[in-house]
Nucleic acid binder design. Structure first.
Lengths: 352, 352
DNA sequence: TTGTACGCGTTATCAA
DNA sequence: TTGATAACGCGTACAA
């Protein structure tokens, strides 16, 4: 099919070894033959077969990216951060979307290992039964970085500071005079949810406000409708609030819809704050105040950490690959920033 | 590193051939040895090296996906459609984001070819100078499917019917009594832009309305701000309109902002219609009427077409690979649907 | 029922 | 300055 070193060699009348040297522009080839080889290679449109190369070098220059749902606006930016970073270092990305399906997640990881990826960045589903999958991955020896905590497993980790994010948001709301701040969490991300709730409580406590369990709701962060219906139920049950911090911007949009349907206005009656800072958050009629997560940077950091791991793994010649006692995992935590826009009722200059 | 057939063979005390047969559950292996082999393979966590396999079978079971910008909400759904479809057939996806950079697009394609992908799905940048890149790709012999037309090149193509989409939208607006309908196009997608403009004109003509060049604007479809500033300029120049069809939902959001800033109301003063139907379109305070493009389906169709191409290419044993005269390219056109919501002023039951 | 031998395209080692 | 040769892990004729 495609031209190989051997073909070039036979055409030019040299050995493949010489062809390799010429194409890699090594100094130890006669200039004339080098030129002849390069010329023929160009004419034939020679492209190295990276698979074959990987077979001998034991490096595929490929990393796997595993996410639960591409269409969640959170992930494309993250992936872009990863892809751009690894691309700059000569790596390609194999992408797998698990659809929040544990079976597919496991299959995806198996497939990636079979494809000899040099490493994996993975945003776990956060199922209660995902531990086994990650233990399998650890045993495989393929380095990987998680974008959220997997139960009590020790892994490399790159995450946002959820507690600090929620804390800043609630603190801000309280400083604006809000007193009944609802927390709309998500049961799909129990770890992050717990962190945020903790930040929420901390802010309340500092302001001397008692924690009120009835102000805590939980739904599905991926879904506008979830935020809306949750908020509707909340109102329907006779409860009230003057502010809502929701787990995602998508949910926050749903909250806004519900609030309006209730005939209340934003932000005067109810302040709404989201989480993530997706692109359209600023484009709403009432621009959404939100805890902005540096998604692209998270991707960058994860990619850089992973590549470091790969280098230190493949770097050492053949000193025993696993020295399980020695490994210290890294945990990189990025601070989110509160982006104040219209929906929280602050008189801000930001976010127009 | 990872266990190979050879290792298993030497442990069990048979040849690699036998191991292969056992692992593929061929009938011509003694049941007992088969079980022994399978057992050992399991214990050692054997995983076939797909790269090595590809070297001999000349099939990598990988397809490349090339898009100009992952964070444009249009693409994740498209990619998901592709990825899910090919995954079901045993393929993995290598993803490349070109950042609307022709140089990176070419590099990405080269890289994919070097990685021996079996095929490529590509959403072209639509630069004026992209032709060379695609000719290179054609010469490589790797089958590929385009998600938009590349100049006057003949390729497999899977696209939405832009003309029909725009036509339906404008027709609807006119049926609601709108008379000055602005068309906000995009200079980044000249082909689709021309198609839509044509649909726009067609609808006007049928209604007996003269085409007015001053109602046509052009900006950057990726950007909310572009829609906003374009619309601002429009108003500032003293022009008016009672409806706007914009090239993307993102742009439409910008238009809505500008209209409100102008003190006009939606939809009574100005009806706004978008294109794409991104997730949040329905979550706006005034839900956005839009021409819904079946992004996921486009991805599915592209993937299926590509896999058909791959099969028919690799299927034939070794009858000359390129019979350039014989190839007939396919063009699959999917119809978009107009989703009527609040922003166009129809009294609809849809889209709440 | 099992094994031998070769090839896929590349890199690496050693020798000339 | 150049070339044999082996090796990576797997698949497949061809034998036995």
């Amino acid at each position: 099919m495609s031209t190989s070193l051997k073909e070039i060699a036979s055409i030019v009348g040299v050995s493949t070894t010489t062809v390799v040297r010429a194409l890699k522009d090594r100094p130890d080839v006669k200039e004339e033959t080098k030129q002849r080889i390069i010329k023929v290679a160009k004419e034939l449109g020679y492209r190295p077969n990276i698979l074959a190369r990987g077979l001998v070098t034991n490096r595929s220059f490929t990393v796997g990216i595993v996410v639960p749902d591409l269409t969640n606006p959170f992930f494309p930016e993250l992936i872009k951060g990863i892809e751009t970073t690894i691309w700059a270092k000569g790596f390609n990305a194999i992408l797998a979307d698990t659809d929040y399906d544990l079976v597919k997640e496991e299959a995806a990881i198996e497939s990636l290992i079979s494809r000899q990826v040099d490493g994996i960045v993975i945003a776990p589903i956060e199922s209660r039964r995902d531990r086994a999958v990650y233990e399998m991955l650890q045993e495989s020896g393929v380095p990987f970085v998680c974008m959220s905590m997997v139960q009590d497993l020790n892994t490399d980790l790159v995450i946002a500071d959820d507690e600090a994010g929620a804390y800043a948001a609630v603190r801000h709301l309280l400083s604006l005079g809000r007193r009944r701040v609802a927390y709309m969490g998500s049961s799909l991300s129990p770890r992050a949810d717990a962190e945020r709730l903790s930040g929420y409580k901390k802010a309340l406590q500092e302001a001397g406000i008692d924690f009120d369990e009835s102000l805590v709701l939980r739904g599905d962060q991926r879904d506008v409708d979830s935020g809306q219906s949750l908020m509707n139920e909340y109102f329907a049950s006779g409860r009230t609030c003057d502010a809502v911090l929701s787990f995602s911007d998508l949910m926050a949009l749903g909250v806004m819809k519900a609030v309006r349907q209730r005939g209340l206005s934003i932000p005067s009656d109810v302040a709404v704050v989201g989480f993530d800072d997706i692109k359209v958050a600023s484009a709403m009629e009432i621009p959404l105040t939100t805890v902005s997560i540096p998604k692209y940077n998270l991707g960058e950091e994860a990619a850089n950490l992973l590549i470091r791991r790969i280098d230190q793994l493949k770097g050492k010649k053949d000193t025993d690959k696993r020295s399980p006692g020695t490994v210290t995992f890294q945990k990189i935590v990025l601070r989110p920033t509160l982006v104040v826009r219209g929906s929280c009722g602050a008189s801000s200059k930001t976010g127009q």
